[in-house]
Design a protein around this nucleic acid. Structure first.
Lengths: 280, 280
DNA sequence: GAGTGGTCTAGACCACCAC
DNA sequence: TGGTGGTCTAGACCACTCA
């Protein structure tokens, strides 16, 4: 039974191999299958939200047993690359659906809030990256970056503060409060054509726009969190006093093959929200 | 082959069932096995760091196939309850070993540091809990809590600041800097006998003491993170100006069966450290 | 060499879903 | 009713560890 299992010879597949990154030679079959499936995702064989081939089909294609394909898919589901749905099939994960929307945003209202967050775009422009940004995003020499700035605003919880801000110094947005000031840097090459108008027109999560229009799927991210004092500009935008403590969240996001494709720095006002984390 | 698989009848085991929490009646076999294994851990059949029975033995004990036991153990390994080691066996996870020590501490030096963190116990006393603490820890009415306070200190990075703090206002600890001020609340019933002396004498991670001496294993935790301004006492202890931004990390830790057993509030000075997080 | 977990297969049946 | 993933089994061989 085990005779036909190849150790040196890699699995033969019909899909032509992609040019970049060679696969490790000796690894378990299911790992090889997993790598091949990741390549298929990377190459766009199946789009986010679509069903991939069934386990049976994949087993036939790769000439392995269904159990081996299953183990590969199990791991990819654990990595949030795929979503299994009994009776329906296995689907490419997406930032489109409720529940997986804003998967990376860990900011939560202290008391459960009905309404979500509103977005307000501040600016979007192309620029030469600073040295730090260029290194983190592994940019080619001379490659520009797109810089995006925006606010996220939450419905104000006025249930017990009705009297307090009767004389608020703001004329509009009495019922809404800025909570997050985001600053993003995106590699110019991958996001050619992204503009303020495009962002303005888009309804929905930004990561959904990226995967739908620019074929850039955010897979995982690393965040570094600090407490900082609000500077003058930040204070004005977030409507807090200068020097107020803010959460600084620096995020580096990766797509398939651990390629960094977004650097983001968020300043969170944690007066009525907190950053939640689960340690396991 | 499938005939002997029981759906209504649960698996018969030799270990007497523990009194608390009834198992759900209808669930996959491997889930039942998992629940039984968790109970064995809870009951102390195998101690942290020790090997559990082999897959073969467990399969025989529970009268299921090895594959079913394997799936149960796989999930428990993914939950960090067990650790598999090829050729050696499967071991109960512990906070003792390097690598799993300080598993829940996400604070990281901005630039890789050689030395770890020093501990300094401030105080440890029994007290009546506030209402919030009592609720979070699900305390019995009238049950006291142990309150512990301590500092974590890091070796100062003096490589480029030699001249700066020549006239530091502190007489001792020139080469060390407080980074974390921790305040813990522990249910008195579970930690009877814990004292300042006991903590002072202990070398190693606190969670290791808890699992070794009080049979309380921390399995997972939830953290809420905010940015706050340092108050007078906190500022003095952490040697920062009053009002300096600090990271407030509120942690609720759970043991087997999702029982909360520790509430902790840490204030982190993130001048040369940050809280790292991986989003997947 | 004996024992452990790790991989792979083949086949059966179940639960769920859509048509 | 047919197809999907989900569970369970039985048995083979491999890789690793330790005495």
């Amino acid at each position: 039974m085990q005779d036909n299992v190849v150790m040196p010879a890699p699995v033969v597949v019909s899909t032509p191999p992609l040019p970049d990154q060679a696969a490790p030679s000796f690894s378990p079959l299911y790992q090889q299958i997993k790598a091949l499936l990741v390549r298929s995702l990377q190459a766009g064989e199946w789009q986010p939200g679509q069903a991939i081939a069934s386990e049976q089909e994949l087993a036939a294609r790769f000439k392995v047993s269904q159990g081996t394909v299953r183990k590969a898919i199990d791991e990819m589901a654990a990595d949030n690359l795929l979503v299994r749905r009994q009776g329906r099939g296995t689907f490419v994960a997406t930032h489109a659906e409720a529940g997986t929307q804003y998967r990376f945003l860990r900011l939560t209202p202290d008391r459960p809030a009905a309404a979500g967050l509103q977005r307000r775009l501040l600016d979007c422009r192309s620029m030469r990256p600073g040295a730090d940004v260029a290194i983190l995003l592994a940019l080619a020499p001379g490659e520009p970056v797109l810089q995006v700035r925006r606010l996220l605003l939450a419905a104000e919880d006025t249930s017990m503060f009705n009297a307090m801000n009767a004389t608020s110094d703001t004329t509009d947005d009495e019922t809404v409060r800025p909570v997050v000031l985001d600053e993003l840097w995106l590699p110019g090459a991958a996001f050619k054509g992204l503009s303020a108008e495009r962002l303005q027109a888009w309804q929905g999560p930004m990561y959904r726009l990226f995967e739908a229009e620019f074929a850039v799927r955010m897979i995982r991210a690393e965040e570094k969190i600090r407490a900082v004092a609000a500077g003058p500009d930040e204070a004005a935008l977030l409507r807090v006093p200068v020097g107020a403590p803010l959460l600084s969240v620096e995020r580096l996001s990766f797509t398939y093959g651990d390629r960094p494709v977004e650097l983001r720095r968020g300043l969170y006002h944690t007066g009525a929200h907190h950053y939640r984390n689960e340690l396991i």
